[in-house]
Amino acid sequence: MKTSQSTVQSGPAAGQAERTRSGQTYRPNVDILEQPEELVMLVDLPGCQGDQIDVRFEDGELTIHAPVAPRQPAGTRYWLREYGVGDFYRTFRVSEQIDSQRMHASYAQGVLTLHLPKVQSAQPRKIPVAVGG
């Protein structure tokens, strides 16, 4: 397994929780893997509604915003509170040429799977060698 940081850069801050205009958001964990024809991202987004996840790709910047509604009523008193519940938000800079028209995503078991197909010219091409007679 080789690892490289060149194609997709996460930005800007590294930290579990960040503040944005919309309040506290959480930075989801991701796997990003590259295959010959596409990049695939697996994003942990537990507790979301699939149809409310907002994925945008513009000028090489990928933004994922997933709203998460509170699961316990305000004023709940916790015996243990080891994680916070709130919207997920994260941006990435993608240097690979992506065919945004063919991007697609699915959501199951709290994981978003995002397919970023490469444009044709960015794919490795096998050149057939003609054999003369």
Binding site: T3, N29, I32
Partner: peptide, 8 residues
């Protein structure tokens, strides 16, 4: 596949 990021 080659992994660019593996946090999960």
């Amino acid at each position: 596949a080659s992994y660019h990021r593996r946090e999960r």
